[in-house]
Computed example of a mutant assay.
Amino acid sequence: MIPTFETKRLVIRPYVKTDADKVELLAGNPKVAETTVAIPHPYPKGLAASWISKHEKKAIEIGSYTFAVVLKSTSELLGTLTFRVDIDDNKAELGYWFGVPYWGNGYCTEAARRIIEFGFNELKLNKIRASVMTKNPASMKILTKLDFEKEGVFKQDIMKSGNYEDMVYYGLLRQNYQYNR
């Protein structure tokens, strides 16, 4: 049900049970949790296995795809991309997190570009949106590289670790999509 994609350096595939330990290691880093809405810190033992077990059902029932991003050369897990499709409004929401050792290598941009291509070229979506905490400029830079436009800032939009966080919302319209050649 969850498709697999390849890029020059990466494989973007469904998660499997054996990924759980690596997810706990990567997501357990406080730097990852700090700027990620849904990742708790400390990361509870066993949470990754439970999380992975729900992916296929969520894809079937609500069109929410969660992908493992791995290096093509070694199959090493780098991080996660999520793509929540809203068929009724012909749009999707892109989300991502990567382990700290893999930051700054362009992996997230490369993987996200392929999922955006899937969204516009294969699913024929009209819009892809993403949101990021204002305290995460690296994530904002990724979205800018992918031609997303800033649509606005929502003050105190989410609560993370007992604190309200401001969120920046971005969008990419099909008419502005540059990779469909």
Score class of each variant (00 low, 15 high):
52 I>T: 11
52 I>E: 14
54 K>F: 04
54 K>G: 12
54 K>H: 13
55 H>D: 15
57 K>F: 03
59 A>M: 10
60 I>Y: 06
60 I>F: 11
61 E>W: 02
61 E>R: 04
62 I>T: 08
65 Y>T: 02
65 Y>S: 03
65 Y>F: 11
65 Y>C: 02
66 T>F: 10
67 F>E: 01
68 A>L: 11
68 A>T: 13
69 V>D: 00
70 V>W: 06
71 L>T: 02
73 S>R: 05
74 T>W: 05
74 T>L: 03
75 S>L: 15
76 E>K: 14
79 G>L: 08
80 T>L: 11
81 L>Q: 07
84 R>E: 08
84 R>S: 12
86 D>R: 07
86 D>Y: 07
86 D>S: 06
87 I>K: 13
87 I>F: 05
87 I>E: 12
88 D>H: 06
89 D>L: 10
89 D>E: 09
90 N>L: 06
91 K>Q: 13
91 K>G: 10
92 A>L: 12
92 A>F: 08
93 E>V: 09
94 L>C: 08
95 G>A: 08
97 W>R: 01
97 W>C: 01
98 F>S: 00
98 F>N: 01
99 G>P: 07
100 V>S: 02
100 V>G: 01
102 Y>L: 03
102 Y>Q: 04
103 W>P: 01
104 G>C: 09
107 Y>Q: 05
110 E>A: 06
111 A>F: 05
112 A>G: 14
114 R>F: 12
114 R>N: 08
115 I>W: 14
116 I>H: 02
117 E>C: 04
117 E>H: 14
117 E>G: 09
117 E>F: 14
118 F>T: 07
118 F>G: 06
118 F>L: 11
118 F>M: 09
118 F>D: 08
121 N>P: 00
121 N>W: 04
122 E>Q: 15
123 L>P: 08
125 L>D: 13
126 N>P: 03
127 K>R: 15
128 I>F: 05
129 R>K: 14
130 A>M: 14
130 A>G: 15
